[in-house]
């Protein structure tokens, strides 16, 4: 593994980092946005189409974020106001947004368009070893680092972050403490959806350039799996994305040697997700393997208690 290879892994995983952080925030607030696969496709298409038309990559990224944010708001509205099941609405929106992306994007298929420009950070990029891996990338990648750090700090070390956790864990208690549960849920669902959309647009503008039907199909599901693998923790989730990026690269390198293996490796996040869930839900396993050490505390995540449940004021 030379530095260039690892740099590719980092840049390849960056769109997923955005999406996974976004979904983590949404789920921390107790809302499941299951529409990720469709949302990311639609925002990848929108992001590329807008950048292609205007020639401005930033506008494309924002447009991608906004469209996905709106899809997320539909889920929040139908769950909070209309008391519909989040899973049902999420699945319908997944299929709908995926088809819509193919239909609306038909004029943009396989056209060369703008992409995010590289930007090397002068001093940090020259550090031997990690410099070329981490700091000879582009602004999108740097903002993903900041995002991960920011939300780690925000969720666990700020008053607002505690409120966010309270809303996802014990909405009744949060409400009793004077927190407007549903307002926060709307906000964090929209914010999470925006980041998911940034991730989608980042795919078509940075990693898998351009647009075609089903351009990044299944990456939304992969992101959902990594959120769980990451135990609803921003740093672990980001590491999960890099791990996935690494696996993809390994699959690519092994392609000539083991063609079967390379086709099957992309599904690895899903068994990992299931294993993580079994792991964190099984007290015996937890007790046997993890005990009370730092590693154990880092590895055990738990889903927000009120995940997927709607909160109705009496």
């Amino acid at each position: 593994m030379n530095p260039e290879t690892l740099a590719i892994v980092i840049s390849y995983a960056t769109p997923l980092v955005f999406a996974v952080i976004g979904e983590t925030i949404t789920e921390k607030a107790g809302v499941v946005n299951l529409s990720l696969d469709g949302s990311m496709l639609l925002s990848a298409m929108t992001g590329f189409a807008v950048s292609f038309t205007t020639g401005n990559v930033v506008l494309g990224l924002m447009a991608g974020g906004l469209i996905s944010s709106n899809i997320a708001l539909v889920i929040a509205f139908s769950s909070i106001r209309l008391r519909l099941n989040q899973i049902a609405v999420g699945i319908v929106l997944t299929l709908f947004a995926a088809k819509l992306s193919a239909f609306l994007g038909q004029d943009f298929v396989r056209k060369p368009g703008p992409s995010v420009q590289d930007l090397h950070i002068p001093v940090l990029g020259d550090i031997p070893g990690i410099g070329p891996i981490l700091f000879q990338q582009n602004l999108l990648v740097y903002s993903s680092y900041i995002l991960v750090g920011f939300f780690f700090w925000f969720i666990f070390y700020t008053r607002q972050g505690l409120n966010l956790q309270a809303v996802g864990e014990r909405p009744e208690a949060a409400y009793a403490r004077g927190i407007d549960v549903n307002k926060l849920r709307y906000f964090y669902t929209a914010l999470g959806g925006f980041l998911v959309g940034l991730g989608g647009a980042a795919f078509s503008l940075d990693v898998k350039l351009g647009w075609s039907d089903g351009h990044i199909a299944n990456f939304g599901w992969i992101a959902l799996a990594i959120v769980i693998f990451g135990g609803w923790h921003p740093i672990r989730a980001a590491l999960g994305c890099y791990l996935f990026g690494l696996l993809q690269l390994v699959a690519l390198k092994l392609q000539p040697l083991f063609p079967q293996l390379s086709q099957v490796l992309p599904i690895i996040p899903f068994p990992l997700m299931i294993m993580t869930l079994v792991f964190i839900n099984h007290r015996k396993i937890q007790y046997l393997i993890l005990r009370n050490n730092v590693f154990g505390r880092f590895i055990t995540g738990r889903a927000p208690s009120a995940l997927g449940e709607s909160f109705q004021r009496l």
Binding site: V92, L93, L95, F96, A97, A98, K99, L100, A102, F103, Q106, D213
Partner: peptide
Amino acid sequence: SSLGGVFQG
């Protein structure tokens, strides 16, 4: 071809 799916959705 995606129009059918858009309609269904």
